[in-house]
Write a protein that binds this DNA or RNA. Structure first.
Lengths: 146, 146
DNA sequence: TATTGTTATACTCTATAACTATA
DNA sequence: TATAGTTATAGAGTATAACAATA
């Protein structure tokens, strides 16, 4: 069962990666876009802390998003060491498309289950996620080792 | 839900990795040990084909296992290009220990669920695994891209 | 001195393709 | 010529630690 979870999780991640690749995003970039869209203005350190990743890892990911004009780093005038992270209008549009992609993905992954079975599975997975202390919307793959 | 599967799958894989690290095995090595223990005498190509991985990827993994005397490559006398893969007695013992580790892992991953809930979850995951064409005991992480 | 973000560096894992030995 | 296994090489992704700018 643990192994099946690992198998299915890998399949889900892989397929999600293929879908977001059509938006020219990597999986971590898709996660960042969502996180920043949901709460704009956070510093890179704050984002890194939420994800549990070293801040240096964000630099290249954000560089790419900024170069493609999906995201803006704004210097915080109160503390000029900080960069506030905001989506551009193009970034917002990409985030919308990401929502569509995620819904398609959800349907593809849960294919073959009835509505009642989906509900039941969602509940069980939610229980496990809680038991393992998983934060809503944060993939453990961001986490630094130890 | 797809995302929760990815989260939980990553957690399961990560925790399994920590456990097998105590046997000084990587996750792919643990999988190989099991595969070879279950059906000894296969060639490296046959194993690679089952896992969907390029044969060259196996070389370093098997080198390490062989150096540690857990595994033996026997030249097939009928076709000296082939190496038959067999576990040594030490390899069999490690495989036994792996079974214990896997059982502990299973319990840890499914913590907090009742026996009935485990059964129900196992069934639902099995359905999904079948829908996605997952082979029993083969982790998609071995698969070559495309 | 401390903190934010960045850069420099190194390491791990993997795929691809060239190579060898056998057939 | 074809196949099994190996080696050589390169690329992606990531962590760590040193660094510059700002506080």
């Amino acid at each position: 069962m643990a192994f099946r979870l690992a198998q299915l999780g890998a399949v889900a991640a892989e397929q999600f990666g293929e879908r977001v690749a059509e938006l020219e995003l990597s999986r971590p970039q898709a996660g960042l876009l969502r996180l920043i869209g949901r709460r704009p203005g956070q510093s890179q350190r704050a984002v890194a802390a939420q994800l549990g990743t070293p801040p240096s890892r964000l630099v290249a990911l954000l560089d790419d998003l900024e170069r493609r004009d999906l995201l803006e780093r704004r210097r915080n005038p109160d503390d000029r060491r900080n960069h506030e992270l905001h989506l551009t209008p193009a970034g917002e549009r990409t985030l919308d498309r990401l929502g569509v992609v995620a819904a398609d993905h959800e349907a593809a992954v849960t294919v073959g289950l009835s509505a009642a079975e989906r509900t039941r599975l969602d509940e069980l997975l939610g229980r496990l996620a809680a038991a393992h202390g998983l934060a809503e919307g944060v993939h453990p793959g961001y986490r630094r080792p130890d």
